[in-house]
Design a protein around this nucleic acid. Structure first.
Length: 315
RNA sequence: GGACGGGUGGGUGAGUGGCUAAAACCAGCAGACUGUAAAUCUGCCGCUCCUUGCGGGCUACGAAGGUUCGAAUCCUUCCCCGUCCA
């Protein structure tokens, strides 16, 4: 089954939300002796199920799924944290000689895993709070000027208005006691020991939009609203990160009577479309992806993916 | 029938004689992104031509006329919409 290649294959399915990554993943896992590893920043969270499109138990068909429901809502998901978790899963799968099939919605997380992360200090909430506070007391462009003083090269790459990235860059410079660009140059450790095969799903924009709209309706019909209500009533803080995910924030606004359900539905569909677009922008740049036009649950697409994998000596 | 208010680019909505192809926001398109990434940010966004320039031409602020060197902005008539009075 491994052919002449000694490395165990690692399959990664990338594509915009609602392109059928999960369906294709399970279909492949069944045929390759694989297991699913979710690569999605939102599916990490327990309790937020419908809106994050976690595959249901029947969707999963007895194929083990990893890295879903591993965080409490008050925990912070990060790319580096994901990498650690994923490396552990990979070790386990290697021992059992199972093929990992990643379903990738969060491109940054896949990159963190495959290409590694430089040794970078973790976030420091105190430092961030201080930076944010002094940014408010100073005129526009304050953070950018600070970064420029610490690391002109990094400052050139980050827009003056991008507070989030500026703060992170300043944070790294201060905590590492050297410019972030130097830290980055010191290198990343790419994943070794796996033969990575990237599969991209690229449905037509128009059909994808239709799917997104329909899926939003279906999620609402499945009781998404009740899920949000129950989460709120469970005493969970409204500040929990997942409450800001697409859909959860809109439905929360409905519960708070700020908007109507119809408005929420439209807003969710729109935000999801925009999200899909951003994913596409990210994935288009991803190296060595074999793209397939269509959805992952399309039998024709599945057949051609399998054909490609066989040609690549995987199946 | 009468009195007001209003009709602006895909949408909302500023703009009351030149600095306005027309603020701002949204949508859309393209892009960036090494620990918040379902996040955050950037550019473009009437049509067109090229020598791609703070360049040229054309079209545009309900319609048609008019005033003016010059109008989305002033005048006239008409057509719509909203509110109120009959």
């Amino acid at each position: 089954m491994m052919g002449r290649n000694a490395l165990l294959p690692l399959v990664a399915i990338v594509g915009p939300t609602a392109s059928g990554k999960s369906a294709l993943g399970v279909w492949l896992a069944e045929r390759l002796g694989g297991e699913i590893v979710a690569c999605d920043s939102t599916q990490l969270y327990r309790g937020f199920d419908i809106g994050t499109a976690k595959p249901s138990s029947s969707d999963r068909r007895s194929i083990p799924h990893h890295l879903i429901d591993v965080l409490n809502p008050m925990e912070e998901a990060t790319a580096g944290g994901y990498r650690q978790l994923a490396l552990a899963v990979l070790e386990q799968l290697r021992r059992r000689q199972r093929i990992p099939v990643f379903t990738v919605g969060t491109g940054l997380y896949l990159r963190a895993l495959l290409e590694g992360f430089a040794e970078v200090p973790r976030r420091s909430e105190e430092l961030r709070a201080r930076l944010r506070a002094s940014a408010e007391e100073h005129p526009r462009g304050y953070l950018h000027r600070i970064l420029n003083r610490l690391d002109a090269e990094a400052a050139r790459k980050i827009a003056a208005g991008d507070e989030q990235k500026l703060i992170r860059a300043i944070e790294v410079c201060l905590l590492a006691r050297k410019p972030i660009s130097e830290v980055h140059r010191s290198g990343r450790t790419p994943l070794k020991g796996w033969r990575v095969l990237k599969i991209g799903l690229m449905p037509s924009r128009e059909k994808l939009m239709e799917r997104i709209n329909a899926r939003t309706e279906a999620m609402l019909a499945r009781g998404w609203m009740q899920e949000v209500r129950a989460l709120l009533e469970s005493g969970l803080s409204e500040n929990a990160k997942p409450f800001d995910f697409i859909g959860y924030r809109e439905l929360r606004a409905v519960i708070q009577r700020k908007i109507s359900l119809d408005e929420a539905r439209a807003a969710i569909q729109q935000a999801t479309r925009q999200y899909a677009k951003r994913q596409l922008t990210w994935f288009r740049k991803e190296q060595n992806v074999r793209w397939f036009s269509g959805f992952g649950d399309d039998t024709k697409v599945q057949a051609s993916v399998m054909e490609w994998l066989q040609a690549a000596d995987v199946a």
